[in-house]
Nucleic acid binder design. Structure first.
Lengths: 206, 206
DNA sequence: TTCATTTTTGACCGTTTGGTCCAGTTTTTA
DNA sequence: TAAAAACTGGACCAAACGGTCAAAAATGAA
């Protein structure tokens, strides 16, 4: 049985390192990030980082797996018994909110996937695919029941992912293009309204 | 006046290096790419690369600027005098086609933007913003003329970008999730149909 | 206080990387 | 065909990087 002794200092420092690592990995990617950067961001020495983690890779993988569950959760709650319009907009809203509140986590995954997902390939083909498959069945049922127009459930999910995560992953591009006098909140409100209009009009039969 | 002497060998080799650089930069990002990788991919020695280009950064920036025009072109042809439904679907189709035919270019930009766009920040705020502003006026006119439902033109464009580029940038995720017995062409056909349904239903008033 | 344990850090190491140099080879030109 | 120009590649360099280590500093139990 593994020892369970984790002191307060250990938890504090591990947490500080993970925070700093998220900051650095999400903006520079795995290869672009350096331990020195993480150390400086965490205000700790490089050696101390290796006292708490065995390697750079280990920090990175810890980050990915730790963030993943939270990342998938919104899709998990998609419920067949709810109203399709409500359920879909709830999903869009939650994903959009995550892009606003934790864009770094989004960019962390985006980086990993764009580089070929070498560390989470099994998850993509495993639990992620399984979850998406499940939810696609639900969407297909809605379609069969005449509650939604006929689209490919898979590509609908991709479309929701893309449209919402865009605001996290391509934040600097969005910021460059929308009027600089527009506040962050207002930008997300407009995004929400646009997504609501397009998805609900686009998917609900009349 | 600058010299214009470019031999056949120069053009050939520069082109081969650029091809290899696109391959490597798009999969590894700027920082993750190494000159050795590019050299090996181009089947040329590292020194030869530095004979044709002064630095790694210069190769990268050349690639970005060279690919950029082609990248923006589909938006340029969006025409106010055309039918809104046709124009928007033409735009979606072309962007989707580019994601299929040249995903590496898409990932090159995605990487650059996700890392804060240090090399194309001026373009983002300059010609890109200007182009988007122009086209948003057209979309707003369509809305004012009652030809489209009321949405934010900016966020509509973001949505089209996101939904189409997703298939290039997150290719491995898409491949992991869609049925492996589905061919690439079929996948893009289904994507096209789904985007068509959602955007046209979502945007056209009735 | 004493002493063992945990934590921190600066110095150091081997490898990788962007980039240089130059001697040699090929291609162009006259 | 021979000189000049363009081109190639192996040896090399300095900086940056991931990671190690031992000694010092902080912490905690008696």
């Amino acid at each position: 049985m593994a020892e369970k002794k984790t002191t307060r200092i250990q938890r504090q420092n591990k947490h500080r390192i993970m925070q700093a690592a998220l900051e650095v990995f999400s903006t520079s990617g795995y290869r672009g990030a350096t331990i020195d950067q993480i150390a400086k961001t965490a205000k700790i020495s490089k050696s101390s980082i290796f006292y708490y983690f065995p390697s750079k890779t280990e920090i990175y993988i810890s980050l990915l797996t730790e963030t993943l569950e939270e990342w998938l959760e919104p899709l998990r709650v998609l419920d067949h018994d709810g109203d399709p319009a409500d359920e879909i907009m709830k999903y869009v809203d939650r994903k959009l909110q995550m892009s606003r509140d934790n864009p770094k986590a989004s960019r962390l995954f985006a980086n990993e996937i764009m580089h070929g997902a070498p560390n989470i390939s099994d998850i993509l083909h495993g639990s992620l695919k399984q979850l998406v498959d499940e939810k696609c069945v639900i969407i297909q049922q809605w379609i069969d029941e005449g509650k939604l127009v006929s689209v490919s459930p898979y590509h609908l999910i991709f479309m929701i992912w893309a449209a919402t995560q865009h605001y996290a992953d391509f934040e600097v591009q969005v910021d460059a293009i929308v009027d600089e006098c527009m506040g962050r909140d207002q930008c997300f409100d407009e995004a929400r309204e646009t997504l609501r209009t397009v998805f609900l009009n686009g998917l609900l039969p009349r």
